[in-house]
Design a protein around this nucleic acid. Sequence first.
DNA 1: GACAAACTTAGGTCGAGTCTAAACTTATGT
DNA 2: ACATAAGTTTAGACTCGACCTAAGTTTGTC
Lengths: 214, 214
Amino acid sequence: MAAVTERPAGLRERKKQQTREHISHQATRLFLERGFDNVTIAEVAAAAQVAKMTVTNYFPRKEDLALDLQEAYVQGPAVTVRERGPGESALSALHDSLLASVAAHDPVIGFSGPAFARMVAGSPALTGRLREFHDERERALARALAEETGTTAADIRPRVAAMQLGGVLRLLFEETQRRTLDGHPDEEIARAVTVQAGEAFALLEPALGGYAVR
Amino acid sequence: MAAVTERPAGLRERKKQQTREHISHQATRLFLERGFDNVTIAEVAAAAQVAKMTVTNYFPRKEDLALDLQEAYVQGPAVTVRERGPGESALSALHDSLLASVAAHDPVIGFSGPAFARMVAGSPALTGRLREFHDERERALARALAEETGTTAADIRPRVAAMQLGGVLRLLFEETQRRTLDGHPDEEIARAVTVQAGEAFALLEPALGGYAVR
DNA sequence: GACAAACTTAGGTCGAGTCTAAACTTATGT
DNA sequence: ACATAAGTTTAGACTCGACCTAAGTTTGTC
């Protein structure tokens, strides 16, 4: 049986990856300097020395030039739930995973630095895109919970659970961003958010502590 | 003391209101006929016999031409919580209010008819705007809960509660829309959603049954 | 080295959103 | 009733993101 995931990694693939990163890097630099809405795709293309069309080929939407955490952000919680150990609830798996990310100052949960936070907060297009990510994330989590608890597709239970769990993660993300905008250092934010995470997950405990225990 | 809310209702005000409704009516008609993304603002302006600029004066974003339920949608739950009777929890007030809206086939909670549901589902711009509404709604609800329980602004408790309560309302809205898209009659949908509402609110009962009791 | 496949490029179109200056309409003061 | 101020509508131009196409360039393969 051939390894399907193995990549030949030809010259073309490497060049594409390089071009993609080069464009993304130039774009991020410009966005942080001058704000997302004050930079046009044409300027990004000029800075990266490619055609406008090449930029939009790699990044169909302008927002994707600034937010390339999509995959990790959307799939993270669903993966955490699927990969948790035996005897563990979805709730505690997500709590543990979050605490680890907080301790590591993971950008995916909001530790993106003040400049990035300002860029996002200052652009309706970016906050809108972030909302889409939250939405997809909740749906991915709902699927993970539904397929595990083996209920029918119409059952609302896993969706309510995913809404609450994803919702708490979202609130803590927003909290991290807000404190970053206020100029607090990551260490201090990590301590505060750890406490808030404890409070928030404790509030879900009565409803979800016994749900989805493997 | 003069009644500040009283309006002179001059000719100018009346004409503006008329124009606004006329534009909105023509727009909705065109959108339902041909789909939101297949109608341009210029066409709406032509149908209403005004200048393009007049359309965008009244409706800064194109999506607002189709979604004029904003105010009721966003403020509804916060108002319900503020106006509930003594001894009642926020949870049960919202549950009761929702059941009444379901029984009345209220468009604001998703009973908008198949054509409207198709229009919304078929347009990323509209679903995105709806997400913004959900967001504002949750924040309005969080404010109502926070000012009542008298906690500090940094306290995460009311935000978690608003996330859970607003989230359930959102899930039930989506469920109503989904069933409408599937072609089921309102009566049947109302019965099914009433049951699901019971299940969903019951799931929040352990966490929120004793919270925000007036 | 030739050919096919994949990628990049220039140039154009469309539509939403914004701006401005001028025309028009309603309200107000004498 | 008239003049003038204040508010509204209008045409036209402009920017930008998104999409399309046809031609050109690079990479992979035989």
